[in-house]
Design a protein around this nucleic acid. Structure first.
Lengths: 114, 114
DNA sequence: CGCCAACACCTTGCAAGACTATGCCTAGCC
DNA sequence: GGCTAGGCATAGTCTTGCAAGGTGTTGGCG
């Protein structure tokens, strides 16, 4: 209710992360970049949200991680979508789209609706 | 992340309530009925969410309330959208739609996106 | 060489929002 | 009397995202 313009919609971060990993594995920083890229900066990921979210996803078995070295020669933690993660993403995305559609229908309803 | 199917998308309840009051004043129970009606039950409002939400909206000056007697002859608290509430609804709805659109674009992105 | 920007990870503490569970009361009907 | 539907409300809990703070590395540039 008190969202500011940079903020994400609640409950979408995990889903976006899973989606970012659907095609390729990425490290945390790369996930943030990916999301900002595909949305042309209209969604921004704060690191203080990202890393705790990744931990939650790993706890639930939706992603797994391991240490590696990046192209830029840094030590990075690389995340991979698990089989369950993929299944979950499919379900959650479908359900989210349905709910979002329901809401946007309400919002677009004529004010004169009775 | 752990939403069940009946759940609302976080952050939308206040907005839906404001929208329900855009055309007519309603009492709490009536708001819940209205939302379920226009979404054909695909969104359900729990009373434990509704009343605290109404209080928040009133605290912020977006709705005002008064006691009345319903058609069914019961004591009811009737809510009205204030001028500021109407302005806020317009802004919040616009912003929500934009964010939701950004997210749905990401979700629909080809998994082969790189 | 020293500095700085970009890259990369992480944690603590907080606030918001929605839910569960529970409680109370009334009107109308059988 | 007892039941259902209508109606209001709160306390406590959980999830989530954020702000603020912190650590360290790499590579380029002056």
């Amino acid at each position: 209710m008190a969202r500011d313009k940079g903020d994400l919609l609640q409950g979408t971060l995990g889903m976006l992360i899973l989606k970012s990993l659907a095609a390729q594995e990425l490290h945390g920083y790369g996930i943030a970049r990916w999301i900002e890229d595909v949305t042309k900066k209209s969604l921004t990921i704060e690191e203080g949200s990202l890393y705790p979210a990744l931990r939650r996803l790993e706890d639930r078995g939706w992603v797994s991680s391991s240490w590696a070295v990046s192209e830029t020669n840094r030590r990075v933690r690389v995340y991979t979508l698990t089989r369950q993660g993929r299944a979950h993403l499919r379900k959650e995305a479908t359900s989210w789209m349905e709910h979002a559609r329901a809401i946007s229908i309400v919002l677009r309803a004529e004010p004169s609706y009775v």
